[in-house]
C-alpha cells in the first residue's frame, strides 16, 4: 500500500461525502459502496460507543439518537489523536456548548464535565488519602500555614445549574422527578478507593477546595472561601474534605 492509498482510505472513512477510494475490489465486481460502508460505520459506531460509555447520563438526557448524531459531529471535528480512548472526549463539553441543536439544554455541558471528571477519577493513580488523625495531632498554631497535596482523582466542578442532582437522576443514582429547587450546585469528584464518588459541596466549599488543590495555604484558602460565600463553614468543609479523602499529604 502506498501512503496515498492509505490516505485516501482514511479520508473517505470519516467524510461521508467523499467517494469510495479507487483501487478497492470485490468478487461481485461492483463498486464496493456497501463493503466500504462497513468500515465507515465501524469507525463512527465504535467511537460513538466509546463516548456513550464515558457519558452515559448525558446520553440518557438527550436520548440515543440525538447523542449519536452529536457524537458523530464531534468525532468528525475532533477525532481521537491517540489509541488510548480512556481520555477521548475530554473536550466534548466545549464542543457541545457550541453545538446548536443542544443549546436549549443549557446544563448539558456541565453534566458532560461531571462525567468526564468521573472518568478521569476512575483511571487516576491509586494513592492512600490523608488520615484526618495526623492533622488533629498538629498544634493549632501550625494550621494556618498548611499546604495540602490533592488526591490524583480529585476534581472540583462549579455549575450555575443543579448539575449533581441532574446527573444523579440520569445515572440511576436518584429517582427521576421534577427539580423543585433549581439552584446552582458545586461538585467534588473523588475516588479514594475503588468507587468514584460525587458529592454536592456546601457554600464556599468549591472555592475552598480549588484554592487548596492549587497549593494555597489553609488560611488564604479560608479567606477565598469566605469571600465566595459568607456562610462558609470552615470546620464542616475541612472535615468533609478529609473524610472524602480529597488530600494525600500536607506540609
Amino acid at each position: 500500500m502506498s501512503l496515498d492509498t492509505q490516505t485516501r482510505f482514511a479520508v473517505a472513512l470519516t467524510d461521508p461525502a467523499a467517494p469510495v477510494p479507487k483501487g478497492l475490489a470485490s468478487w461481485t465486481g461492483s463498486q464496493p459502496e456497501r463493503r466500504f460502508a462497513v468500515y465507515r460505520n465501524n469507525v463512527i459506531a465504535a467511537l460513538t460507543g466509546a463516548l456513550a460509555a464515558r457519558f452515559p447520563a448525558s446520553q440518557q438526557i438527550v436520548g440515543e439518537a440525538f447523542f449519536a448524531a452529536m457524537a458523530a459531529d464531534f468525532i468528525r471535528a475532533h477525532p481521537p489523536r491517540s489509541p488510548l480512548l480512556l481520555s477521548y472526549g475530554d473536550d466534548f463539553a466545549e464542543f457541545v456548548e457550541r453545538f446548536e441543536p443542544a443549546k436549549a439544554i443549557a446544563y448539558l455541558p456541565d453534566v458532560i464535565r461531571l462525567e468526564a471528571a468521573r472518568g478521569k477519577a476512575y483511571h487516576a493513580a491509586d494513592v492512600a488519602s490523608l488520615d484526618a488523625a495526623t492533622l488533629a495531632a498538629l498544634s493549632p498554631a501550625r494550621l494556618a500555614d498548611l499546604v495540602f497535596v490533592p488526591h490524583p482523582s480529585l476534581c472540583v466542578l462549579r455549575s450555575p445549574h443543579p448539575v449533581v442532582t441532574i446527573w444523579a437522576m440520569n445515572a440511576g443514582e436518584a429517582a427521576l422527578q421534577p427539580i423543585a429547587n433549581w439552584a446552582a450546585e458545586d461538585a467534588m469528584v473523588i475516588r479514594p478507593h475503588l468507587i468514584v464518588e460525587v458529592r454536592r459541596l456546601p457554600p464556599g466549599g468549591a472555592a475552598f477546595l480549588q484554592a487548596l488543590a492549587q497549593g494555597t495555604c489553609l488560611a488564604a484558602a479560608v479567606d477565598i472561601a469566605t469571600e465566595d460565600a459568607d456562610a462558609f463553614d470552615l470546620s464542616a468543609n475541612l472535615a468533609g474534605a478529609l473524610q472524602s479523602g480529597a488530600f494525600i499529604a500536607f506540609r
Binding site: 500500500m1 482514511a10 466509546a50 477525532p79 489509541p83
Partner: peptide, 18 residues
C-alpha cells in the same frame, strides 16, 4: 491498521498484500 497521520480510527482496517 487503525491510525493514520496520528488520527486513531478505532477499527481494524485492511491493507493490500504486496
Amino acid at each position: 491498521w487503525s491510525t493514520h497521520d496520528s488520527v486513531f480510527l478505532n477499527d481494524l482496517l485492511p491493507l493490500p498484500y504486496t
